[in-house]
Design a binder for these strands. Structure first.
Length: 337
DNA sequence: AACACGGGGAC
DNA sequence: GTCCCAGTGTT
């Protein structure tokens, strides 16, 4: 009855009558399907006879990772920060930085008051430091537009700097428990395999991906929210890109990819740019120098990070136009103040 | 639709 | 050495 137990966590948030009724059956050692049959359609829990949701939530309750932002009492701001940090960055690397940030800047107002240099140093080597600056702008916008409270409305969320389709949905669903599809790379892959029987998701097509994921959602918002989290977790832990562990997948009996008996293509699926020596690499080197220096850095030190002047200058001017670096009159460079 | 944008860890 | 990762903003 892990599936039923999982509803306990959302009981207070939902206040739904249905949740209470389910909980009353908690001691009864019956499976989700039998429970559904007993309750009947009048209970309005179509989720109960939704095989996918039932399997997903049973598995999730048992196997979910103990991520710090999943702790009870995490604020909407905490969830938003965790999502922005997790954009293109593995959660294992995000967790310690997230802890530090939430301790230091527990809400949008305190974070908005920090300097850009402090923000960029605290971001450390998480990568894509423009995210840190956008998060800073985001906090200011939350203070200005929403009185310091992270909004629950998807449209309001998407209007914030650095918050796109995915992150807006993630905050609305994971924190505010809205019923809305949350589509990241994991969900796209799981849906491609489970529904379409394809080995991997193709190029992202936001509207179609959202429709496909939305079609799988159970009717109740709180259950749908858990379903969305679980689907992402499944993609991250079981239905992985390289080596899906179908043997232990809770969805294996009805997965069209598993049914097809197909195997993942071996070779590289697409051409990939080298990293070392790219502008992006050089930008990273320059940022590392500036982060680790307490004050302005002379040009000669910047010149040391890469031998080719054109590449170096391209990286530097890019950083300046992105607002990540400031050029001082005395030919020194610094993180923005 | 295709790019640019970090950095680290798994294989 | 290559691939992947809780994406977003710009062109």
């Amino acid at each position: 009855m892990a599936w039923v137990v999982s509803l306990r966590a959302v009981r207070s948030a939902s206040g739904a009558r249905g949740a209470i009724r389910i909980l009353s059956l908690e001691e009864s050692p019956v499976g989700a399907a039998r429970l559904a049959a007993r309750m009947g359609r009048a209970a309005q829990w179509r989720a109960m006879d939704d095989w996918l949701t039932s399997r997903l939530l049973d598995w999730f309750e048992e196997s979910k990772r103990d991520l710090p932002w999943r702790a009870e009492g995490t604020t909407a701001w905490g969830v938003l920060v965790s999502e922005v940090m997790s954009q293109q960055t593995p959660v294992a690397r995000v967790a310690p930085i997230w802890q530090e940030w939430l301790g230091r800047w527990p809400d949008p107002a305190s974070f908005a008051a920090a300097t850009q240099a402090d923000v960029l140093r605290a971001w450390g080597r998480l990568g894509y430091p423009r995210r840190a600056l956008r998060l800073h702008e985001c906090a200011a916008a939350v203070v200005e537009r929403h009185g310091g409270e992270v909004p629950a409305d998807i449209t309001d969320l998407e209007a914030l700097p650095g918050i796109g389709t995915y992150t807006a949905a993630a905050v609305a669903v994971f924190h505010y428990r809205r019923r809305h599809a949350v589509v990241d790379t994991n969900v796209r892959r799981v849906v491609a395999r489970f529904v379409a029987g394809e080995p991997d998701a193709g190029t992202a097509t936001t509207a179609a991906d959202l429709r496909a994921a939305a079609a799988l959602l159970p009717p109740d918002p709180t259950v749908a929210a858990e379903h969305s989290i679980a689907l992402m977790e499944l993609g991250a832990m079981i239905c992985t890109a390289r080596k899906p562990d179908c043997a232990v997948c809770p969805l294996r009996e009805r997965c069209r990819f598993k049914e097809s008996g197909a195997v993942l293509p071996e070779g590289p699926s697409r051409k990939r740019q080298r990293y070392h020596g790219t502008t992006r690499y050089v930008r990273g080197q320059i940022m590392a120098v500036l982060r680790e220096s307490s004050g302005p850095v002379p040009r000669v030190v910047i010149d040391g990070v890469w031998h080719e002047a054109p590449r170096r200058e391209a990286a530097l001017s890019g950083l300046i136009s992105d607002g990540l670096v400031e050029a001082l009159p005395n030919n020194h460079f610094t993180l923005p103040t």
